[in-house]
């Protein structure tokens, strides 16, 4: 396959909401010339097996990602704060499933 398009076309992140799902989940990325085309291509690449009922595409360049090197300072401090988990609460019977 020729590759020029891969250099010229921006990368898009694709989020798909499944029939049962409440939220859009990240499922991959693709190259497309513009947003409308990215939606079309996402349909063809990621929903061929009835995976979704709704698609979002976002320019990958618009995503600000955390630096893997900062993993320690960002996430490790949460490790010893188990009291933040709601497992210590007794849930009254009448509340039902939460």
């Amino acid at each position: 396959m020729n590759t020029p398009a891969l250099k010229d076309w921006p990368l898009w992140e694709v989020f798909v909401r499944s029939k049962q799902g409440l939220e859009h989940k990240h499922c991959g990325s693709l190259h497309a010339a513009d947003a409308a085309q990215a939606l079309h291509m996402a349909r063809d690449v990621y929903t061929r097996r009835q995976e979704g009922v709704s698609i979002w595409v976002v320019p990958s360049a618009s995503i600000t990602a955390s630096n893997p090197d900062d993993k320690g300072e960002l996430f490790d401090p949460a490790a010893d704060k188990i009291y933040r988990h709601p497992t210590f609460y007794e849930i009254p019977e009448e509340v039902g499933h939460m």
Partner: peptide, 10 residues
């Protein structure tokens, strides 16, 4: 043989 992978699938 599509011009790009995404279009090949389309």
């Amino acid at each position: 043989h599509g011009p790009i992978l995404e279009e090949d699938l389309a």
